[in-house]
C-alpha cells in the first residue's frame, strides 16, 4: 500500500479466523489505520487481495458493507441530529427493515448505556458518549466483522472497563473483531489473537497465549538488599554464579536480572541468598507482558 512515494504497508499477509478478537499492535505510523481502512474499503491497496467475511472487498465492496462495521479513533457525528435520529439514519442506510429499526436502536442504546440520552442533541454529548453512540451505530445492522481503530482512545477508566465488557460480549456472540490499540496490557484481556505491526510489516501474529509463550524471554527478577557492607557486590557475585541468571543490572541497592530457569527453581535461589548471609529485603519475579514483548520485537527500549 503506497501513499505517493511512501510505503504504508508492505508484503503483509494476515488471516483472522471467524469469531476471533484480533488485536493489532504497533506504534504511530506502523500502518494499523491504513490496514483497517483498506479492510473497510475506504482505501484501495496498490497491490494485493482483501477478503472480509469471504467477500473480495475490492471487486464487490457493496456486498461486503452490510457484513462489516468500522469505527475510527478520529471521527465526527452529525452535530445537529438527535441521538435516535442519528441511529435511525444509519439503520436506514444499512437497509434495516422499518419494523426492526426501533427495537434495534433501543437495544444498541441499552448496550452502550445511553437509553436516557435517546432524545438529546449530539452536540450536547461528551466525547465518551459520542464514542459510545458511534459504537452503537456500528452494531445496528448486526455486522459479522467489526473493524475498530483505537476505539477506546478517548474513554475514561470506567468507560474503558465498560468497553472491554462490550468487546467480550461481542466475542461471546461470535462476532469477529479486529481492533487496534496502544493500550497493550488491556489487549491481552479481551484479544484471542494479536498481530504486531511495525513500519508497515507484520512482525508476529498468532494466538495471544502462543505469542506470549514463544516470545517471552523469562522472568524478570528484582532483588533488593540492604545497602552497605558490600551486600550488593556479594549479591551480584552470587547471582553471577547461577547459570539461570542473565543481564544483571545494579540499581542502587537493587539488582534486576532475567531468570532463564523454571519458576519452581526460585526457592533454591532464595535459600542460597539467605544462606550466604545477604540481608534480603525483597525478591520479586514478574513475567513478560505483551508490552515487554512488543517493545523487544519492535526494537524499542522498555520504559
Amino acid at each position: 500500500m503506497e501513499y505517493g512515494d511512501k510505503v504504508a504497508i508492505e508484503n503483509l499477509s494476515l488471516e483472522v479466523e471467524q469469531g476471533e478478537v484480533f488485536g493489532l499492535i504497533g506504534p504511530n505510523g506502523a500502518g494499523k489505520t491504513t490496514l483497517i481502512r483498506v479492510l473497510a474499503t475506504l482505501l484501495e491497496p496498490t497491490f494485493g487481495n482483501v477478503r472480509v467475511a469471504g467477500i473480495d472487498v475490492l471487486a464487490d465492496p457493496l456486498s461486503a458493507h452490510p457484513r462489516m462495521a468500522y469505527m475510527s479513533d478520529f471521527f465526527s457525528l452529525y452535530e445537529n441530529m438527535l441521538v435516535w435520529e442519528y441511529l435511525d439514519h444509519f439503520a436506514r442506510c444499512y437497509g434495516v427493515e422499518a419494523d426492526r429499526r426501533e427495537r434495534l436502536i433501543d437495544e444498541a442504546l441499552e448496550l452502550v448505556s445511553l437509553e436516557v440520552r435517546r432524545d438529546a442533541e449530539i452536540s450536547e454529548l461528551s466525547r465518551g458518549m459520542r464514542q459510545r453512540i458511534c459504537f452503537a451505530k456500528s452494531l445496528l445492522h448486526e455486522p459479522q466483522v467489526l473493524l475498530l481503530d483505537e476505539p477506546a482512545s478517548g474513554l475514561d477508566p470506567a468507560g474503558r472497563v465498560e468497553f472491554r465488557e462490550m468487546i467480550k460480549s461481542l466475542h461471546a456472540m461470535g462476532r469477529t473483531v479486529l481492533i487496534s490499540s496502544h493500550i497493550l496490557t488491556e489487549m491481552t484481556e479481551f484479544c484471542t489473537s494479536i498481530g504486531i505491526l511495525e513500519q508497515g510489516q507484520l512482525l508476529a501474529s498468532g494466538k495471544v497465549g502462543d505469542i506470549l509463550s514463544q516470545l517471552k524471554s523469562g522472568l524478570q527478577l528484582k532483588i533488593e538488599t540492604v545497602a552497605g557492607d558490600g551486600n550488593v557486590q556479594r549479591l551480584m557475585d552470587l547471582l553471577d554464579a547461577w547459570d539461570q541468571t542473565e543481564q544483571l543490572v545494579v540499581e542502587d541497592s537493587r539488582i534486576c536480572c532475567t531468570w532463564r530457569g523454571e519458576r519452581l527453581e526460585l526457592p533454591a535461589l532464595h535459600r542460597a541468598i539467605v544462606e550466604a548471609n545477604i540481608p534480603l529485603i525483597s525478591l520479586a519475579a514478574q513475567e513478560d507482558d505483551l508490552e515487554d514483548i512488543y517493545m523487544r520485537i519492535s526494537g524499542h527500549k522498555t520504559s
Binding site: 475506504l42 457493496l62 458493507h65 475510527s72 471521527f75 444509519f90 445492522h141
Partner: peptide, 12 residues
C-alpha cells in the same frame, strides 16, 4: 469532518 467515511461503508 470525515463523516463521509461512515456513509461510504453503508449499504447505499
Amino acid at each position: 469532518e470525515r463523516t463521509l467515511d461512515f456513509q461510504r461503508i453503508v449499504s447505499l
